[in-house]
């Protein structure tokens, strides 16, 4: 860190102005690289196991199109609103930023609600995590994504509180920017889940 942490650069966007912020944003990008490796492993596990259904149901028998489609729409929209929030932040408008963050948060909560409903539905049909290797890998892959989204919601709430307390500073701006990176990343992962798990599962 050292005094470099306070090397202030007026010409950069708010979230990049201090050296500490630049380091943190780079570090978070690298962390996302590790997350890519993590999800890649979960996807690989799923692809290895997804036809090994044992005595349990297959993907085709199980998946509900409607719920998954609603989840997808909610999450993709939330990624767009999250982008709008950062756009408002770059224009220096705190109220716009807060509004769009709140909308993002609600959409994320909606996504989680529908996902939980979907899971409960499967469990009622007798398809639990313990039924077969396919279902174990399905629940852990999709559940890990869901846990990430839930964590993101909690994180965003903390940042909204800080924005209300402290306003738009280089520090809070950096936090908004980093949580937005995280949110978009989860969106990208969901696109893969949607195609590789649900679409593929409904065809094969």
């Amino acid at each position: 860190m050292a005094e470099a942490a306070h090397r202030y650069d007026e010409t950069m966007p708010l979230e990049y102005r201090t050296q500490e912020s630049r380091l943190n944003i780079l570090g978070f990008w690298i962390f996302l690289g590790a997350e890519v490796a993590l999800f890649a492993t979960l996807f690989a596990t799923y692809l290895v196991l997804f036809q090994r259904t044992g005595s349990g149901p297959t993907a085709k028998e199980l998946f509900e199109v409607k719920d998954v489609l609603i989840e997808t729409l909610l999450l993709l929209t939330s990624s767009f609103t999250c982008g709008l929030a950062v756009f408002e932040m770059r224009r220096g408008r705190l109220s716009g930023l807060l509004t769009w963050l709140l909308v993002t948060l609600l959409l994320g909560a909606g996504f989680i609600t529908f996902e939980i409903r979907e899971f409960i539905h499967y469990v009622h049909e007798g398809a639990t995590m313990q039924t077969s290797a396919f279902l174990s890998s399905f629940f852990v892959l999709v559940g890990t994504h869901g846990a990430h989204v839930s964590l993101g919601i909690g994180w965003m709430i903390l940042i909204i509180i800080q924005l209300l307390q402290r306003g738009l500073t280089p520090r809070t701006a950096r936090k908004v920017f980093i949580v937005s990176l995280y949110w978009h990343f989860l969106d990208v992962v969901w696109i893969f889940i949607f195609t590789l798990v649900y679409l593929t599962g409904m065809v094969i």
Binding site: T41, L42, T45, T53, M129, S132, A133, L135, F139, V140
Partner: peptide
Amino acid sequence: PVFTVALALMTFDRLFGTQFFTMANG
């Protein structure tokens, strides 16, 4: 991260009865 996942799957198998590395149920 690969190890993180492998250990998590092991934990699920051992604590919660999932079927990743078992001999039955796929």
